[in-house]
């Protein structure tokens, strides 16, 4: 049996000020699966996402493709899991888009001779082939979001975790991003409250509320249950 892409067991986390963010969360995502993680603001979705990359440590078990997320495995885990943050200004911190996309591969030790090729490929994948020498400051939000995607695609991550990928995008930006996501073969975990996105992209949905997983199932089934969506602030 192949290991699941993401396996979270009984994960609990409190912020330093004592506010509980996750309480006994368990989650399993198979390889190649596309799962939407739904929930109202403050449900713990983003906090859970940070755990998948070892950015938060707490009680419970997190495994990525069978490898436990522990300090000694961080490099491997961070190569396998690409996090795309909600605000692309947090993710794009270099003077040029090229430097930003090259940042991850450089940290992984990719030789400079291959950098140009890897960066060009990643930017072409997200439809920004001309942006390499531009400053992230001067991209539109849609372009920033796609450049942020390129920064993790360049690391050849097998699992992509996207935090609100369509937030703040205009309809065209949103459509372009959805087309891009549909074309990807990686395992996807999409944190969102965009139900349309979940419907058209993900086969399975997980709903979180107050730090707990409260429902999960087939997208078509789950998103048809109006009272469930209302209860958890999704409709």
């Amino acid at each position: 049996m192949t290991a699941p892409a993401i396996s979270v067991k009984n994960l609990s986390f409190r912020y330093p000020d004592g506010v509980p963010a996750l309480e006994g969360v368990s989650l399993r995502v198979a390889q190649g699966e596309r799962v939407a993680l739904l929930g109202a603001n403050g449900a713990g979705k983003s906090t859970l996402m940070l755990h998948l990359n070892g950015l938060h440590e707490s009680r419970g078990e997190v495994e990525i493709l069978g490898v436990p997320v522990l300090r000694r495995n961080l490099k491997l885990v961070r190569q396998r899991v690409g996090l795309v943050f909600q605000n692309p200004d947090d993710q794009l911190f270099c003077p040029t888009v090229f430097e930003d996309v090259a940042f991850g591969p450089r940290n992984l030790g990719l030789p400079e001779s291959r950098m140009e090729e890897v960066v060009t490929h990643a930017l072409a994948q997200v439809g920004l082939p001309q942006a390499a020498q531009r400053s992230p400051l001067h991209l539109s939000i849609g372009e920033k979001k796609r450049a942020a995607m390129a920064t993790v695609l360049a690391m050849e991550a097998e699992i992509l975790c996207l935090d609100e990928p369509t937030a703040g995008l205009d309809p065209r930006g949103r459509r372009e991003l959805m087309d891009l996501l549909k074309a990807l073969s990686q395992t996807l975990l999409v944190v969102t409250h965009d139900l349309e996105l979940a419907r058209s992209l993900c086969s399975r949905c997980v709903i979180m509320a107050r730090g707990k997983v409260v429902a999960e199932g087939e997208t078509s089934d789950l998103l048809g249950r109006q009272e469930l969506l209302l209860e958890h602030g999704l409709a």
């Binding site: 950015l55 899991v81 690409g82 940042f103």
Partner: peptide, 9 residues
């Protein structure tokens, strides 16, 4: 920003 940097190794 630091989290974004750390998550890319």
């Amino acid at each position: 920003v630091h989290q974004a940097m750390a998550s890319r190794g």
